[in-house]
Nucleic acid binder design. Structure first.
Lengths: 110, 110
DNA sequence: GGATTACTTGGTATAATCGCCAAGTATAAG
DNA sequence: CTTATACTTGGCGATTATACCAAGTAATCC
């Protein structure tokens, strides 16, 4: 059975959301924001990259609908808009552990 | 606070797992595999791309530890190794709906 | 053995992503 | 009004991803 145009679009949108999360720096940001809102300067410190780089990462998360932001004074504060993304981490850790276990077994068989 | 090397590695591994899922065709495959194992030929039909392309997508999912495979006769069957990835979809749909709602509000304000 | 089916892998062209620098905007402070 | 701080955006080179074709392997059939 082939996918319809609407189904294809839905798949692309879902993939875009996952892609937005699929970067070490962006994961670091999401994790930090799970503990409360942060300004770009704080996140820049944390990530350890150029502020322009971090700003672009944040725009990716924004476009995906994962974070929200507002300006107060000179600072721009970001916060998690969809806390459910944090649930991903449990499953991802399970996959990591499985992979580690499997790599070990492969080693033994050699 | 800066991240240690181990933390950085963990972030990269987590991002790699998400990246493996972050493609429309691969999401389609994962969804299909949630209903049981499938051979590459069935998945190729479903995705509607060259078999070599689908095979490479499957190798990405395999390397990420998301699917398993075994050969029986001429056919290679793939199945989900970590069903918990299916939980992602609920949250992703919530984000999609939120985005739709927000786009509507932005329209009204214009 | 020869042909067929089901995959995988290498090569390659094209497109997307990433990170920095430089330049621009906006608010606040002196 | 000038300066400084906090961001964002444009642009550029470098890396990475994606899709197809062609060629190779592996199991089955005749």
């Amino acid at each position: 059975m082939k996918a319809t145009d609407a189904e294809q679009l839905a798949l692309e949108e879902r993939a875009a959301i996952l892609k937005a999360l699929a970067h070490p720096s962006r994961l670091m940001v999401v994790d930090e924001l799970s503990r409360g809102e942060r300004c770009v300067c704080e996140l820049t410190e944390l990530v350890g990259a150029d502020m322009s780089t971090v700003s672009k990462h944040l725009s990716v998360l924004r476009d995906a609908g994962i974070v929200d932001h507002d300006k107060r004074g000179v600072k721009v504060f970001y916060r998690l808009r969809v806390p459910c993304v944090l649930n991903f981490f449990t499953c991802i850790e399970a996959i990591r552990k499985e992979k580690g276990r499997r790599a070990l077994i492969a080693d033994k068989e050699r």
